[in-house]
C-alpha cells in the first residue's frame, strides 16, 4: 500500500452543485410556504372552537344510525343506476373521441379537436360539471348522469387514445395493403388490438363512476350524495356515519370485483 496519504475529507456533494441556486431554491420554498400561510384567511377563533365541536360531532355520530335504511337504499340504488347508464354511454362516446384524438391515425385538425374534447372533459372536477348541469337541466339523476358521461369520456378517451397510438402499425399496413378503406382498417386492424384494453378501462370506469356518483349528489345531481349532504345539513351525524360506512363498504367491494375481473382479462 502507498505511504500514509495526506488527510483528506469527504462530504456528500450537495444535490444542486451551484450554491446560489441551492440556497435560492430553499429560500424560495420557505418563502412560498410563508406567503401561502400568511395570505390565506384563517379564522383562528373559529378553528379553535372546532376541537370541542369535533368531540360533539363524533359523539353524536356514534353509534351510526341504520334505522332509515329505506332512504339509504333509494340513494344507493340511484347512484348505482347513474353509474351504469353513464358508463355505457360515456364509454360508447369515448371510442370515436379516442379515434379522433389518436395522432397516428387522425389528420391534424381532427386530432386537435379530439384532444380538446378530452382536455376539456378531464380538466373540470365532476362536481363542477355537475353544478353546471344541475343549473341547465334541473336537480336529479339526469344532471348526475350527464356529469358522469363527461367524466368517463375524459378518462377513457384519453387512455384509449394512447392505446390506439401504441397499436402495432404492421397490422394496419397489412389491412390497408389488402385495399381496405379507413373504417375497415379501424375495425380489422385497430379495434381488435385495443379491445382488451377497452374492456378493462370500461370496468375500471364503472368503478370510478360509482365513486363519483356518490359526490355529485352533494350539489344536487342525484344519488346517495344528496342524502349524505342532507344528513350533514340537519346535523344527523349518526345517519351520515351510517351512509359513509356503507359507502366505503360498497367502494371496497366494487374495487375488489373490478380488480378481479380486470386481472382475469389480461
Amino acid at each position: 500500500m502507498s505511504a500514509a496519504p495526506p488527510k483528506r475529507t469527504w462530504r456528500k456533494p450537495p444535490a444542486i452543485a451551484n450554491p446560489v441556486l441551492r440556497y435560492g431554491l430553499l429560500g424560495l420554498t420557505f418563502g412560498y410556504l410563508y406567503w401561502a400561510v400568511a395570505s390565506l384567511p384563517f379564522d383562528w377563533n373559529r378553528i379553535v372552537q372546532g376541537f370541542p365541536r369535533a368531540v360533539r360531532i363524533f359523539g353524536n355520530a356514534i353509534p351510526p344510525e341504520f334505522a332509515r335504511s329505506q332512504l339509504m337504499i333509494t340513494g344507493f340504488t340511484e347512484s348505482i343506476q347513474m353509474a351504469i347508464i353513464a358508463t355505457l354511454i360515456g364509454v360508447a362516446l369515448s371510442v370515436p373521441v379516442a379515434v379522433m384524438a389518436a395522432r397516428t391515425i387522425s389528420p391534424t385538425p381532427v386530432y386537435l379537436l379530439g384532444r380538446a374534447i378530452i382536455i376539456l372533459a378531464r380538466s373540470f372536477h365532476p362536481v363542477i360539471v355537475a353544478i353546471i348541469f344541475v343549473k341547465a337541466v334541473g336537480f336529479g339523476a339526469l344532471a348526475g348522469i350527464l356529469t358522469l358521461i363527461v367524466y368517463s369520456l375524459g378518462f377513457v378517451g384519453k387512455l384509449l387514445a394512447e392505446a390506439i397510438e401504441e397499436v402495432d402499425y404492421g397490422q394496419i399496413e397489412a389491412i390497408r395493403a389488402s385495399g381496405a378503406g379507413y373504417f375497415k382498417v379501424l375495425v380489422y386492424a385497430v379495434f381488435p388490438q385495443i379491445l382488451p384494453r377497452q374492456v378493462g378501462l370500461s370496468i375500471y370506469q364503472l368503478d370510478s363512476n360509482l365513486r363519483a356518483s356518490a359526490v355529485v349528489g352533494v350539489v344536487g345531481a342525484g344519488g346517495i350524495g344528496g342524502t349524505l349532504m342532507n344528513a350533514f345539513r340537519r346535523f344527523d351525524y349518526d345517519f351520515a356515519l351510517a351512509i359513509l360506512m356503507v359507502l366505503i363498504a360498497i367502494i371496497l367491494v366494487s374495487e375488489g370485483i373490478s380488480g378481479r375481473i380486470r386481472r382475469g382479462l389480461t
Binding site: M1, S2, P5, R8, T9, W10
Partner: peptide, 10 residues
Amino acid sequence: IDRAFTLLER
C-alpha cells in the same frame, strides 16, 4: 474517510 480513500486507491 481516511481508510475509505486508502482502500479505494488500493
